[in-house]
Amino acid sequence: MTAVTDTMSIPAARPQRKTPKGTFDIVFRNASLISALFVLLLLAGIMLSMVIGGWPAFKAFGLSFITGSQWDTQADVYGAWPAIVGTLSTALIALLIGVPLSLGIAVYLTQLAPPWFKQPVSTTIELLAAVPSIIYGMWGLFVFVPLFAAYVQVPLSNIVEGMPIVGTILYSRSPSGLGILTAGIILAFMIIPFIASIVRDMLDQIPSVLRESAYGIGATTWEVVRHVLVPQAGVSIIGAIMLGLGRALGETMAVTFVVGNANRLSASIMDPGSTIASRIANEFNEALGLQMNALIALGCILFFVTFVVLVVARILVSRVKTF
């Protein structure tokens, strides 16, 4: 018995990877290394070019370039705070709307939808993911904006006018349909197909024995989703959400059409505003001198924000894996 125990306690020897000897193995190894180094060099090159291009603006205005709200091309005075706030606000609104809808779509398609209905909806989601962003922007400007102004902004402004806090956030002084909330809704429509498609695929890959075991002990569909599917696919769900957030932060044309492109800060999400991407798109063709440097500095800030989002995503994923 002791000999058997000792034998079982000895860890199995880990198979050793053979050193590449053949020509194809060496070529494959070197090609893989070059590919990995190329990604790092490309990222370093982008970061370096952005910093060099935007440095004159950072040097001229210092911290006030980030905290300032004045953007005057005639006086060469630039402040990025309204664009930064607009970028974060529209992305947050898009996540608040898009994430619950995306998760609901994915759960319905994998757990509740009948077979005859599942395939058409899945195909529609994939088609929506392939629609160019400018199409979303044109649809938002010519179709969604007039309807939103007539049936949401005007009635809502009449209801909340004069209310504390709620009235400040939802009241529109000029209900044209353009604004931060409109841009956030359009972004939500754009990120829903990406998040829903990824989460659906991840839920489909969870072994069916886990679900069947949960149903076998009397669990409801909600309990299976809450206690089996979500923990199993938690890392993938976070990754899908961060992918959607990355697109929402960097989206240009669709937001430019519907955000209003007003360089001002407003407590109301109904009022027009601007984002970093929309400001760059509007002014880049005619920018010269310090204005060009300010726009590149805006791009550098957006790059930094995206990098911070990636770091946060990595931290969340690592924490989910530990549970």
Results as ranks from 00 to 15, higher is better:
residue 6 D to N: 14
residue 16 Q to Y: 07
residue 29 R to H: 13
residue 30 N to E: 15
residue 31 A to F: 15
residue 34 I to Q: 11
residue 45 G to Q: 10
residue 47 M to T: 02
residue 48 L to C: 08
residue 48 L to I: 08
residue 50 M to V: 05
residue 53 G to Q: 09
residue 58 F to Q: 09
residue 71 W to F: 14
residue 73 T to P: 03
residue 75 A to G: 15
residue 76 D to E: 15
residue 79 G to Q: 08
residue 79 G to R: 05
residue 82 P to S: 06
residue 85 V to P: 02
residue 87 T to V: 06
residue 87 T to K: 03
residue 91 A to M: 11
residue 94 A to I: 12
residue 102 S to F: 08
residue 121 V to L: 15
residue 135 I to S: 06
residue 138 M to Q: 13
residue 143 V to C: 03
residue 146 P to R: 13
residue 147 L to G: 10
residue 151 Y to E: 08
residue 152 V to S: 08
residue 156 L to N: 09
residue 162 G to N: 05
residue 176 S to D: 11
residue 179 G to A: 08
residue 186 I to F: 09
residue 186 I to A: 06
residue 188 A to L: 09
residue 191 I to G: 01
residue 191 I to P: 01
residue 191 I to S: 04
residue 192 I to R: 02
residue 198 I to K: 05
residue 204 D to C: 04
residue 211 R to S: 06
residue 217 I to Q: 10
residue 222 W to H: 07
residue 222 W to C: 00
residue 224 V to E: 11
residue 225 V to W: 00
residue 227 H to P: 00
residue 227 H to Q: 02
residue 231 P to H: 14
residue 235 V to T: 14
residue 236 S to P: 00
residue 236 S to G: 15
residue 239 G to Q: 10
residue 240 A to D: 05
residue 245 L to H: 04
residue 247 R to C: 07
residue 254 A to R: 00
residue 258 V to H: 10
residue 259 V to S: 06
residue 265 L to W: 11
residue 270 M to T: 05
residue 271 D to Y: 02
residue 272 P to R: 06
residue 272 P to F: 06
residue 273 G to A: 12
residue 276 I to Y: 04
residue 277 A to H: 02
residue 278 S to P: 10
residue 282 N to P: 00
residue 284 F to K: 01
residue 285 N to K: 11
residue 286 E to G: 06
residue 292 M to H: 03
residue 303 F to G: 05
residue 305 V to H: 01
residue 311 V to Y: 05
residue 312 V to T: 08
residue 315 I to H: 01
residue 321 K to H: 10
residue 323 F to T: 06
